Simulated scan of single mutants.
Amino acid sequence: MLIDSHCHLDFPDFSADLPGVIARAREAGVTRMLTIATRIAKTETYRAIAEAHPEVWYTVGTHPHGAAEEPEVPAETIAALTDHPRCIGIGEAGLDYHYEDAAPEAVQERVLRAHIAAARATELPLVIHARDADAHMEAVLTDEMRRGSFRAVLHCFSSGRRLAEVGVDLGLSISFSGIVTFRRSHELREIARAVPQDRILVETDAPFLAPEPHRGRTNEPAYTADTARSLAGTLGLSFPDFAALTSANFHRLFSKAGPEPLRGMGA
């Protein structure tokens, strides 16, 4: 059993054939998926997907690309939206300074801190997005962890070794996407080898970042298996052992999902 710990099943890429996407995932051994929020305003959409498909859980939150659209949502509101059995996390929220038209840094930081407060209050894990913001992310996470502990995962990790080390020291998990399969991702594979194995998750970030040998196509949860095979080789593990490891890590972090797969859902 594999779990795609981060995908976006609400995106238009999947609207014409979401049942087919989920069926192909199951055929590839990916029996669980976590669809990740990008806007608080779309919470009902994520909820509806999870309610319609028992293989899917969801989160609530505001992506940094949408921070300017939802700059003042209080932590209490975010926390209240998690009161559903299929909602098992908060985010994705974070810092992304890659694009020139990104929301102001101060706005992104304010939104991130509100999500951290919600994660702390609910004891649900926060899904963190970090891109071209390593130093600022390190400062925010370190400061917030001093204020009170919270659980989190640095998703689709492609940052530098320093942020990975800080994240591990703070107790965070690290999730790797198809980027780790790319031929030029030597440094990222070295980082993966250095992360404690009980902190590693695997994801697609679908519909983005399809792994080899699917690069250039629309990514989908079935391709979690290709990233998992690549990472298993990087870590010197068999594919079944890696699948069992990352599934156990997922359930430990996203504990609201339960310690084991739900019965009657084709596990």
Rank of each mutant, 00 (worst) to 15 (best):
D134Y: 01
V153R: 09
T246D: 04
R86K: 13
R26E: 12
P261A: 04
I49H: 10
V140A: 12
P196D: 15
L154N: 08
E109H: 04
V60I: 06
H155G: 03
H251D: 00
R229Q: 14
T122Y: 01
D101R: 11
T227S: 12
R199I: 08
E144D: 08
L253G: 02
V73H: 01
A206L: 01
L126F: 05
D83S: 11
H186P: 00
A232R: 09
R215S: 04
L18F: 15
P213Q: 02
D169P: 02
D96H: 12
R47L: 10
E76V: 08
A119R: 09
S247D: 15
K42N: 14
A75H: 10
A228D: 13
T142E: 11
E44P: 00
P196F: 12
L34S: 07
L262S: 04
R24D: 11
V140H: 12
I88H: 05
L126H: 06
E92H: 08
S159G: 15
R26L: 03
H65K: 13
I90C: 04
T77D: 14
E100N: 07
R183F: 05
S177L: 02
Y58C: 11
H53R: 00
Y46N: 07
S238V: 03
V60C: 04
I40G: 02
A244N: 05
P259F: 00
F11K: 12
I3T: 03
V30K: 09
S185L: 11
E100I: 09
L124C: 02
E100P: 00
D169L: 12
K42H: 14
D198G: 04
V168Q: 08
A164S: 14
A192H: 08
I116Q: 07
F14R: 14
L163I: 14
A130M: 06
V107P: 01
A206I: 01
E203D: 07
A164T: 07
L34P: 02
E165W: 12
A118G: 05
A16N: 12
A121E: 06
S5V: 12
E109C: 03
L172H: 15
A52H: 01
C87E: 05
